[in-house]
Structure formats: structure tokens, C-alpha cells
Design a protein around this nucleic acid. Structure first.
Lengths: 188, 188
DNA sequence: GTCTATATGTGGATAGAC
DNA sequence: GTCTATCCACATATAGAC
């Protein structure tokens, strides 16, 4: 039961944090969703800071693996880029959720320093993947480039995160699609 | 800046809300910054919901007027677009602040319904201005368009908001610049 | 309009029994 | 590992004196 409970807490924390932000979830919320008491959550994660760090580490690993899978599975640059966009679309969950990195970013003042470091690492990782994908799209001619790959990567991540934010605020997935059109039409 | 207490409270609330988000600021914070007691804040704004609505209304008006000024002052489409980007850059305040709309968006679950309506109106307004600006840039040939103006407008807003978010999370304004390069290089 | 005082709920976190 | 019970700080909000 021990290891199971710990991941149940993490699953619950990720869900609520991505829906409500860092300041928007509490141990009481987790306790109710997991079905144990607040004190038991503290047994697994002594502080909220520790929980948030573990959450970001797990999220980083998951996304890194997802991108590795995309790059080895999809053959063309455009197909890889569309797959990454699909990833952000599904993370939106119909406008009810955000990427954990986006969800945490507005709460900088209340975040433990470790989590800010994790956020930085996460965006660096995503930009590295996107740069690689834009390079592939340039090489195989399946993406129409407007700037060089590093520039495209930085803009691409900001675009996806900003599109998520608008769609989440109004629980309207169409706002995500509207913002992504310009990028997607450049993929053959 | 503010002659009366009510606008002093609004100024303070806007500053802290843009730095910390909706769940990240309290009446105690405002009271300390303005130099009066919490109960006095409640005299001007009975609830936090009422304060947030007033805040968004004022912010909407300010930005709408700023865009009007930009469009009548700057002659070319590219100059207008650069001026809007300047607006978002200065709203960042060196990585210490966000656009109020961005700052509120991740806290959807705790926001009063009125504020969500205001957020929707705000983004619609900004997209309308951007569409007009991209149309001007297309007509005078000072912006290289990648899609039609409505598409460019939706992507442009998401890009600026996403770029702010990353720069704010790490208090690193360069991250905003990195994400904006691709757009700015399309302006003559 | 601003104050003191207070009500009432919730936040994260701990002690110690089982 | 999980529980009950409790701590203390802080949240929004109200009552009523000045």
C-alpha cells in the first residue's frame, strides 16, 4: 500500500495543481481526493515545497520521454511538430487543465527556489526538442521556416503556452486552436 | 499618482496581483502597502471579487486607450506592432510583473464569474486591435504576413502572453526577447 | 472613512496513539 | 502508514465606536 499511496498523492496533486495553480491547491484537497487524512500526506511529502519539487521532476521526465518517443516515431519534421502540438492540446484537457510548468509560472512569489530551477530546466528541455524538430523540418522541407531553428523554438514554446493559457481561462479549447493555426499551416 | 484612497488601493492591488496572481495577494498586503487597515479596504471594496472586477475594468480601459493612442500615433503597421510589443515588454517590468489578464488566467477556479467575463472581453479587445494592425501592415507592406490577419492576431497575442510567462517565471526578460524575435524580424 | 476588535474558516505543519 | 487532535498563522469578512 505504501508506494501506491505515494503515487496516488502525486497523481492527485498534479491534476489539481494543473487545474488550480500552486496557490490554488492544498493538502486538504489532496486528502479528500486520495481518501486519506492530511497528516498522512505529510508522511509522504513533509512539506508542500517537497511535493512540488517531486511533481516537477516527474513531469519533466514524462515530457522528456514523450518527446523522445515522438522524435523516434515520427519520420518528418512536420509530423514531429504536430505531435508536440497534440501533446499540448491533450494537456489542456478540454480547457480544464494546463501544462504544470504554465500552471506554476504565475505563482513565482510563492514557489520554493527548487521549483523555479525545475521550471527553468523544463523550458530549456522543451526548447531543445523544438529546435531539433525545426531543424528536421528545415532539412526535409516539411516545415516552412520563418526564422532559424533556435528562434522558431523559443517562439513555438511561448505560442503553445500562451495558447493554453487563453483556452484554460475561458475553458474554450477553440482558443488554443485559433492561436495554433498559423504554426500548423506551415507544416506540410 | 493616486489622489484618493480608493485609487491608491487599486494601484496597489494591480501591482501585487500582477506580481503574485489572484490567489497570491490578500487584503493584508494591500493594507500594508497603502498604509491603512484591512477593514478600511473593505469599506472601498466590500469583497475581493468586487475589487478584482474593478481592477480588470480599469485595466481593460487603460490598455484599450493605449492601443488607440498607438494606432493614431504610429503611421506604419510595423511601427504599431512594435509599439504593442513594447507595451507588453514594459508590463513585464524586468521580469517582476505580468499583464493582469495573464496573471489571473491560471487561477480560473478561484475567480468570480464576473472576472472571467472580463478576461474574455480583454482578450477579444486585444485580438481586435492586433487584427487591425496586421491588416495595416499587410496594406502598407511593412509586415511580412505568414497567415491572414485574424490568424496572425490570435497567434500574436498567445505569443506575447506566453513570452511574458516564461520571462516572469525566471525573472529573466531575455526570455521574452527570445520569443519575440521571430515576430519582430518580420517588421520592416 | 478609518479604526479596534472579532468572527469564522482554512492554510501548512506537528505530536503521539494505534 | 494512518489516524485524531491540535497548533499557529493568515485568509475574507463584519460590527460598531470614533
Amino acid at each position: 500500500m505504501s508506494t501506491d499511496t505515494k503515487s496516488a498523492v502525486l497523481d492527485s496533486a498534479e491534476r489539481i495543481a494543473r487545474a488550480c495553480g500552486f496557490d490554488g491547491f492544498s493538502y486538504a484537497d489532496l486528502a479528500e481526493e486520495v481518501g486519506i487524512r492530511k497528516a498522512s500526506i505529510h508522511h509522504h511529502f513533509p512539506t508542500k515545497a517537497a511535493l512540488a519539487v517531486t511533481l516537477m521532476q516527474r513531469y519533466h521526465k514524462t515530457l522528456d520521454e514523450a518527446c523522445t518517443h515522438i522524435v523516434v516515431t515520427e519520420v518528418s519534421g512536420s509530423a514531429q511538430l504536430r505531435a508536440v502540438v497534440d501533446q499540448y492540446r491533450s494537456a489542456l484537457d478540454g480547457g480544464k487543465s494546463l501544462c504544470l510548468c504554465v500552471a506554476f509560472s504565475t505563482s513565482r512569489e510563492s514557489l520554493p527556489a527548487d521549483v523555479i530551477t525545475q521550471i527553468s530546466r523544463f523550458r530549456t528541455m522543451m526548447i531543445t526538442w523544438l529546435k531539433e524538430i525545426f531543424e528536421a523540418g528545415k532539412a526535409d522541407g516539411t516545415i516552412t521556416l520563418v526564422g532559424d531553428p533556435p528562434m522558431e523554438a523559443a517562439a513555438g514554446l511561448a505560442l503553445m503556452e500562451g495558447a493554453q493559457l487563453a483556452a484554460r481561462a475561458e475553458e474554450t479549447p477553440a482558443l488554443f486552436e485559433n492561436a495554433m493555426q498559423l504554426l500548423l499551416q506551415r507544416c506540410s
